[in-house]
Amino acid sequence: MTLNIVKNATCTFCGCVCDDIELHAEGEKIVETKRACSLGESWFKHHTAERLFPDALIDGHPATVDDAIERAADYLVAADMPLVYGLSNVTCETQREAVSLAEMVGGVIDSHTSL
């Protein structure tokens, strides 16, 4: 298996967002995290690219992503006051999409900050 080395990778586990980490990835796993602290190391090693979970669940049953997206849209459109919440472990690009979605369905958008 080939070793894929990523220099200056960014750790998003804590707010420090260290961007000097060298990751060694082998297949579906990260095997080495140079310069990361112990929290960062376990964070990187914990997330693999394996298919551990079903693509999507509807009412607890495995479903396709397409169906799940349609169902999600139905719920959000039907709601009078939907809430979009979280946004901490996602990228800024995702957050922008989420703000736009919240506006479109006329809802509330909130992050961890308010807790």
Binding site: T12, S88, N89, V90, T91
Partner: peptide, 12 residues
């Protein structure tokens, strides 16, 4: 704390 909460503030 975690990851990109700061980004959420900035983007919003």
């Amino acid at each position: 704390g975690h990851g990109n909460v700061t980004g959420a503030d900035v983007v919003m």
